[in-house]
Design a protein around this nucleic acid. Structure first.
Length: 286
DNA sequence: CGTGGCCCCTGTGGGC
DNA sequence: TGCCCACAGGGGCCAC
């Protein structure tokens, strides 16, 4: 569910609600969502929350006395702070932190997400985040081309590879490819400098636009304060297969690329780059 | 190295 | 209404 904009929206709403507050109590209802120690100390009991940091789709909850927890929300996870009346559903709450004046709940019905505890931020960074590529908001054309340019796989699969660039998922990979007029099945090796330039710009533009709107709520997603996002109303391709392209009016196509349902415009996203549109053969396995 | 398939899990929506 | 199946915003692992 949550990709970079959703995770960033959670970070931004959570920081004001939990940063600087001390953890008084932690309930771990399901031990198996935690990798590493799940003791009160490892769960930051007694420490104050110094910072909530994000890289790609990951969050780090950082204590002021060294402990750190990596949070990954998987497909259905949420991290919601509540005070007074609850704003989130009560089921599937696997871990609940009681802070001064607020509770923080990790919910994850499908349990594809989880928590990873570390005795220090350095250990978290070195052992968990080190295998992630640069954050998708920080990468430029040279960075993207450098990390994917020699790969023969489809560009969509490349964008989803968190070791290459961190933060893009199925929604924003499709949206960025459409905005950049790049066909999702084009081999990375076929992209030219101008393609990498447009793609890196559109990745950034789409992600920033979504963060501004509070992320995309398709079904489950809620921000750190329980609010829904608004960017789903601005999706150009995701979830719109068969509907007319907002740019050229052609019916949007869909297929499986990189193992994920993918939607693109056969008119705006030429299969063979911008050179010879007219004679280009549509890339398709069907 | 890359890909396709399967798995982890629950919930929901569509078709019959 | 109820049942069954397909599919969902993620990612790890395996055989090929």
């Amino acid at each position: 569910m949550p990709e970079l904009p959703e995770v960033e929206s959670i970070r931004r709403t959570l920081r004001g609600l939990v940063e600087g507050r001390r953890v008084r109590r932690v309930e771990v209802a399901r031990r198996d969502v935690v990798t590493g120690a799940a003791t009160p100390a490892a769960m930051l009991c007694g420490q104050s929350i110094a910072e909530i940091r994000r890289h790609g789709k990951h969050l780090a909850i950082i204590g002021d006395r060294g402990g750190a927890i990596d949070v990954h929300l998987g497909m259905s996870g949420s991290l919601i702070a509540e005070w007074g009346q609850g704003v989130g559903r009560a089921d599937h709450r696997h871990v609940v932190w009681t802070l001064e004046g607020v509770t923080l709940a990790f919910r994850d019905p499908r349990r594809f997400g989880g928590l990873w505890t570390f005795p220090s931020l350095d250990r978290l960074l070195g052992e968990r985040w080190a295998r992630l590529g640069p954050d998708a908001l920080d990468i430029d054309a040279a960075g993207l081309a450098g990390r994917l340019g020699t790969s023969r796989r489809a560009i969509k699969a490349g964008l989803l590879d968190q070791a290459a660039v961190a933060g893009l998922g199925n929604i924003y990979a499709d949206e960025a490819l459409h905005s950049a007029a790049v066909h999702p099945r084009r081999p990375c090796t076929s992209l030219r400098a101008a393609d990498w330039e447009r793609l890196s710009q559109e990745v950034r533009r789409v992600l920033l636009g979504s963060i501004e709107a509070g992320g995309s709520t398709i079904r489950d997603y809620r921000s750190g304060d329980g609010a829904e996002g608004g960017f789903q109303a601005r999706h150009a391709v995701y979830g719109r297969a068969g509907a007319p392209c907002s740019t050229c009016g052609r019916a949007l196509r869909s297929g499986v690329v990189g193992g994920r349902t993918t939607v693109w415009c056969g008119g705006c996203q030429p299969a063979r780059g911008s050179g010879r549109r007219r004679g280009a053969t549509e890339l398709s396995t069907a």
